[in-house]
Simulated scan of single mutants.
Amino acid sequence: MMSTVKNAKIGLFFGSFNPIHVGHLIIANYMATQTDLKEVWLVVSPQNPLKSKESLARDQDRLHLVRVAIDDNQKLRASDIEFSLPQPSYTIDTLTYLRERHPDKQFVLIMGGDNLPTLPKWKNYALILRDFELYVYNRPGYALGELENHPQIKVFDKVPQMQISASYIRESIAAGLPVQYLVTEPVLKYLESSGLYKKNRKKG
């Protein structure tokens, strides 16, 4: 169930989650438990305008992986809201739709500090900054740029982070290498049973 608390502040953590790994979960859980956010929704994107869709696993597979990964955490939720929206998915469109659908909630965009300097390239980025707060987790070695001190942006410097990439996990699986400890046990079991990301997996 989604939060029923009126005016609840909900963090939106967008990603392809291809697949979701412990690095994603550490960030999401920090934001959900050590900020003023009531919940964090992990929004599974069907297509990132800046990425090729060819490398993506099927939408429902990635959504299922997110669900099993966070099943034991009451403050995290999986969202497939973008599956029903026009593609490619743009953040401003999703934010606007969610605000119209849930007028009793305050939505906050969660993003990495490495992405903040590119925000001006996003569709209608000025509207995002006007209408929504941004919670930015600082990434060591990346400059936040001129938007760092924007009144709608709050920077968090102590968010634990791990140098894990979904592409490394996919490549490891394709090469027959173990990915234990990089993903949660339920995710690992599904990856093994489904054959997801293996080179010889037949496309449906």
Results as ranks from 00 to 15, higher is better:
A69K: 04
V68M: 10
W41H: 13
F17N: 09
P86Y: 06
H24A: 04
H64K: 13
G11R: 04
W41I: 01
L25E: 05
L76M: 11
K38L: 03
T33I: 00
S55P: 00
D93A: 08
N18A: 10
P88A: 08
Q60Y: 12
F83M: 11
E54S: 15
I10Y: 01
L25W: 10
G11V: 07
R77P: 03
F83A: 12
D80W: 01
T94A: 06
K6A: 13
V43G: 03
H21W: 04
K38A: 12
Q60N: 14
D59R: 00
N73E: 12
S84F: 13
P19K: 05
K51S: 07
S16A: 13
K9I: 07
V66W: 09
V43A: 01
F14G: 12
R67C: 11
I92P: 04
G23H: 09
V22C: 12
V5L: 14
A8L: 05
A69V: 09
E39N: 14
H24N: 10
V68L: 11
L12F: 08
R58A: 13
T35M: 02
T33D: 03
S52W: 00
Y90Q: 09
D72V: 10
L37E: 08
V68T: 13
S55K: 12
L85K: 14
I70K: 06
F13M: 14
R77I: 12
V68E: 10
Y90L: 06
E82T: 10
I20R: 01
E54M: 05
K75I: 05
S16N: 12
G23Y: 05
I26R: 14
Q74E: 15
N18I: 04
R77D: 00
A8R: 05
P88V: 06
R67K: 15
I70V: 14
V66P: 12
A32D: 01
H24C: 06
V43Y: 00
H64F: 08
A78Y: 09
L42I: 14
N48W: 02
V44W: 05
F83H: 09
A32F: 02
E82M: 03
V66E: 07
T35V: 01
R58K: 11
S89H: 07
P88W: 04
L37G: 02
N73L: 10
Y90F: 15
W41E: 11
H24V: 12
S55A: 13
G15D: 10
A57I: 07
T35S: 04
A32T: 08
D59Q: 12
D61K: 01
